[in-house]
Design a protein around this nucleic acid. Sequence first.
RNA 1: UGACCCAUGGUGUAAUGGUAGCACAACAGAUUUUGGUUCUGUUUGUUAAGGUUCGAAUCCUUAUGGGUCAACCA
Length: 553
Amino acid sequence: MSEEKSLNFLEEIIEEHLKEGRYTSIVTRFPPEPNGYLHIGHASSICLNFGLTKKYPGYTNLRFDDTNPDTEDTEYVDSIKADVRWLGFEWKHERYASDYFDQLFEFALKLIDKGLAYVDESSSEEIASMKGSPTEPGRNSPFRDRTIDENRDLFLRMKNGEFPDGSRTLRAKIDMAHINMLMRDPILYRIKRAHHHRTGDKWCIYPMYDFAHGQSDSIEEITHSICTMEFVPHRELYDWLIEKLGIYPSHQYEFARRNINYTVTSKRKLLQLVNEGHVTGWDDPRMPTVSGLRRRGYTPESIREFCERIGIAKRDNLVDVGLLEFCVREHLNRIALRRMVVLNPLKLVITNYEQGEEMLTMDNNPEDVSAGNREIPFSAELYIEQEDFMEEPPKKYFRLAPGQMVRLKSAYIIRCEEVVKNPDGSIRELRCVYIPESRSGHDTSGINVKGTLHWVSARHAIKAEVRLYDRLFRVEDPTDEEGDFKEYLNPASLVTVEGAFAEPSLASAGHHDRFQFIRNGYFVLDSSATPETLIFNKTVSLKDGWTRPKTDK
RNA sequence: UGACCCAUGGUGUAAUGGUAGCACAACAGAUUUUGGUUCUGUUUGUUAAGGUUCGAAUCCUUAUGGGUCAACCA
């Protein structure tokens, strides 16, 4: 395989820059605002930014864009750092836009001195009404032509807390008729008396995104500042400010954010789901957050692989969540320990098994012999899955039915002899006979069966709660539907099975273990589980290749 | 009725003027003590119309479709 993997458009740009000597190494940054938890879309950006400096010489900073103290909090800072590390990346410098507040203030003064910024006393509504529209030019503020001295004095007094919140702003003096709305004298600073998670009450004025992000990039000498497409119009202002300030020329490049079907990736919407109790928290296993995926049992490897496969481009997209599921199955298939767990038990009695019990050997992972074997107890009273038995089976039903034979995984072949019912007609238990010569690994019976079932020994089984998850929304793109997106939540996104029976070895399951419950799916111990109460989360189902007959849904 | 960004199978992404490829999904078959895994094969695509060229997914024009922009959010 000497075939070079094709480059995405950013790698092409960087290789060109490196080749022509514009840079000898690159610096990128991942710039979250600490006002929410990271989600799968951020994971894509993290893999991109950190991946680029893994592939090319250079490094990546983690920089918190903390210029709006109203919504930001250290809780988010901590979760973001944990998530980036869990994904497998380490930043060079941990920085905060708030580290630069003094310098940003000086930058603002510099702009004022150059006659490129002014203090405006218009109200928020007045500024909006003077802004014009995409098709109509705006109007100049009556405060636009103050002298430099006046602006300097006023801005200092803004900083010193002499004016009430919202009463004044510092604006760049560009062009109120500019075709780009962002160039119509954008607000640079606002007055806001809010406690900042890092600078406390030192400041009562805070810079806006446009006056913090690019300047922070410049201070850190970021070479390639990568963001999403909605910032394309900001680039003109980004470049204007850097040029007028005469500071290090970072450059902004944009890519299309990744969207995934059957979920939402908007911090605002995710926050709503949390606050309104539609999920149990940011780390609810149904959430597309990094912490949710982690609790659900996803591995960092599988998430990185997913990000690699979906790639980077500039067009709108809606990625099939099936690809994410494929990636996690692919990884878990290699590493997960196979275990037997019966979710909906049906009692099965082997009438001709007279030796009480015995231990049978079973592979821990057929994909990995080094995972070894274990012993599992077998006895005359077992549980199998309710859905593995049908009294009147359709054609091609390989499971148990009256008179039909199946193999019990790693044990014996059995034949169903009798169905014992309760007074209400429901099935109480199955009575079967086993074929003694068919023991797994020592089968001399010569019998071939199509189906193999998982099972647990009734006497030895341990109880477990199993949480089954399905997609959070019923529709591919909840944001695109009529009305509130929450109307499209999937009511069956969580199904809790309380009375599952697990094989005894699961009593010692650890939080880092990954399991495949045979014939069912991949599972992980929930973070809330204790040695006394086993709780498992379903990460993802096994692929189901069985095309059921039409009568059966 | 403005500006900007984007347009390749069902989905995501390659092809950088010269054979439209890869992955997922779907379907069919083989193997299988997990209806899993693995293996083999099949179906499906350049938004449209003009132009440039020996040759266009690629360059040009127009149209169409989608997205973004009028927060003291980022």
